[in-house]
């Protein structure tokens, strides 16, 4: 197989290709159209593109082939789609680009978008968002459903896309760049609580897979593995990937939120001092 075969999709999905091209085009066009002072810096652009590229790679290149025929690589794929990729994209703070495109929307679209906004608001209720985030992992790892998803092409794509979209929703809720002091977004304390809450169920699932004596996900036995590997090893690695990295991601996200909280406090303290000083002068 030539090198470029590794870059081509294993299972070509026109919809996936279109979605990624549209997002990339809109991002770059927005970037270009923004005035220099609003434009995200090089590091932020790089972070966004890296997240996008990671998601595309695991979904629509040869990587997808290995994800379909190796359990632990499948777990790696979902780690990128549900955790790492969306986290990077959100962390890059694409808000200016999003605002730019929101300004381009014609007014008549508002009533059409209203139901979308409602669904979005419901999904972004903290408890629903956290339940959905963990629930989706559990759902697709239900042995019966997992088997079906690996056999059915449409279900497989629904699985991967649901992970990516939910990842974007959850990490946006957690790492929303707007400050809760000035805008109606989730408070820092609640963000940290959610990040802590999602750790135990994910770890429990990972540990259960890791320490299972029997084969929980035998679809990889039935359909053949990408290369000969002991089924126990495959399942064990998959368990570790379900357990450890998500917990670490929560840890990193908590540090980021604490950092923002402290920066906000410093800023508001400075503002307070400035106000006090003004009062003294007056």
């Amino acid at each position: 197989m030539s090198w470029y075969h590794y870059l081509l999709p294993y299972d070509f999905s026109p919809l996936t290709l279109i979605a990624f091209v549209v997002v990339l085009t809109m991002y770059l066009q927005g970037l270009y159209a923004l005035p220099a002072e609003e434009r995200p810096g090089v590091l932020r652009v790089f972070t966004f593109l890296l997240g996008l590229l990671l998601c595309y790679t695991v979904m629509h290149t040869r990587f997808d082939y290995y994800s379909q025929y190796m359990f632990f690589i499948h777990r790696g794929q979902h780690l990128v789609l549900h955790h790492l990729g969306p986290l990077l994209m959100v962390l890059s703070n694409p808000l200016p680009i999003m605002r730019f495109w929101a300004r381009q929307l014609p007014g008549w679209l508002d009533p059409v978008l209203w139901p979308v906004k409602m669904v979005y608001r419901v999904l972004q209720q903290p408890l629903i968002a956290a339940t959905l985030f963990v629930g989706l992992i559990y759902l697709w790892l239900t042995p019966e459903l997992h088997f079906d998803a690996m056999l059915s092409r449409p279900l497989y794509w629904v699985m991967n896309w649901s992970m990516l979209l939910d990842g974007l929703l959850f990490w946006w809720l957690i790492l929303d760049p707007r400050s809760p002091h000035t805008e109606r977004v989730l408070g820092y304390g609640k963000r940290i609580i959610l990040l802590v809450l999602i750790i135990p169920p994910q770890s429990a699932l990972g540990a259960w897979i890791l320490f299972s004596d029997s084969m929980v996900y035998d679809v990889y036995e039935v359909c053949g593995r990408a290369w000969p590997m002991a089924p126990e090893t495959d399942q064990m690695l998959g368990g570790v990937l379900t357990w450890i990295p998500p917990a670490m991601m929560s840890g990193i996200a908590i540090l980021i939120v604490i950092g923002r909280m402290m920066r906000d406090d410093r800023n508001s303290a400075k503002a307070q001092q400035a106000r006090d000083a003004e009062e003294v002068h007056a």
Binding site: Y69, Y156, C223, P228
Partner: peptide
């Protein structure tokens, strides 16, 4: 094989040129 969500692969040939083939058991 792809249509039925399965795969197959070839192992390394031994000195007699024999090789193993991994395939679906279903």
């Amino acid at each position: 094989a792809k249509r039925y969500r399965t795969t197959f692969g070839y192992g390394k040939p031994d000195e007699d040129g024999n090789y193993d083939v991994s395939h679906s058991s279903a």
